[in-house]
Simulated assay, not measured.
Amino acid sequence: MDSKNLKRICTICARGGSKGVKNKNIRTLVGKPLIAFTIEQAWQSNLFDEIAVSSDSVEILEVAGSYGIRHLIVRPAELATDSAAKLPAITHCVRSVESILNTEFDTIVDLDATSPLRTVDDIKGAVELLETKFVSNVITAAPARRSPYFNLVELGGDDIVRLSKQSDKPIVRRQDAPKCFDMNASIYVWSRKGLFDFPTIFNFDTRLFVMPEERSIDIDSELDFEIVELLMKKSLDAKK
């Protein structure tokens, strides 16, 4: 199928509860609620037939509505606990919009609200990779600072420190280790079949879209928030 004829939906799933950073999804970041940056990126990409925000929080949904989102999906309580996986929330959101519109989407893109440093080109690149390679899904990551073959260690039950992953021969330089990446939770892309027939993050044909470290910070702590805020302010000052 020609990619121009594919129907695409973007989901943005944002829970109300947050232990690391209180109310982080709507906390003000350089003048805007955090979630607003992701919503604006989705609009600016011009990729999506529909954009939907899923949340258990009325306040988050109200903020999303103020930024032009018409599909405000109330997430069931069982999908909004601290231990609930995100994937069921994504499929619930997609199914809900499909039921409202009586349609089906070919490509599903989930953008994490806590990764505001991504660019529109990152979104376009990840979607293009899925649709040109005809794979089940695409995930995003940045080159890892640490290697499980070289300087990433685990503490065993005997309190002995060991490398996380052993190689056939000793690796004395990180550059000689197999390439490793840190998942940045920024962009997830699925084909329809990939999402609903194989609802996992890692499938037999999962592809990787690599993003630089400076666009890969996922806000999960106060320190993360401060770093992102610093980088955004620096970017804004550079444009003045």
Score class of each variant (00 low, 15 high):
Asp168Ile: 10
Leu79Glu: 02
Glu98Pro: 02
Arg8Leu: 07
Asn23Ala: 14
Asp82Lys: 08
Asp82His: 12
Leu155Ala: 03
Pro143Ile: 09
Glu213Thr: 12
Phe134Trp: 11
Val94Lys: 08
Ala126Tyr: 13
Ser54Ile: 10
Ser164Phe: 08
Ile108Ala: 01
Ile35Gln: 07
Pro143His: 10
Glu226Gly: 11
Ile12Thr: 07
Lys193Ser: 03
Tyr149Thr: 01
Ala141Glu: 00
Ile60Gly: 01
Pro199Asp: 07
Ile26Glu: 06
Leu155Phe: 06
Leu231Phe: 10
Asp224Gly: 00
Phe181Glu: 03
Arg215His: 09
Arg118Thr: 14
Gly194Leu: 04
Pro212Ala: 03
Tyr149Met: 01
Glu50Trp: 09
Tyr67Trp: 11
Ser221Pro: 08
Asn46Arg: 15
Arg174Ala: 13
Val74Lys: 15
Asp159His: 15
Asp2Trp: 09
Asn203Cys: 07
Ile219Arg: 04
Ile219Asp: 01
Asp205Pro: 13
Thr114Asn: 10
Phe48Leu: 04
Met1Trp: 00
Val153Gly: 04
Ala64Arg: 02
Leu223Lys: 12
Arg207Glu: 13
Val109Gly: 00
Glu229Gly: 01
Pro178Gln: 00
Ile26Ala: 12
Pro178Glu: 00
Ile39Asp: 01
Arg95Leu: 08
Phe105Met: 01
Arg95Phe: 07
Val138Thr: 11
Met211Arg: 15
Glu40Gln: 15
Val135Leu: 11
Ile171Trp: 15
Leu130His: 08
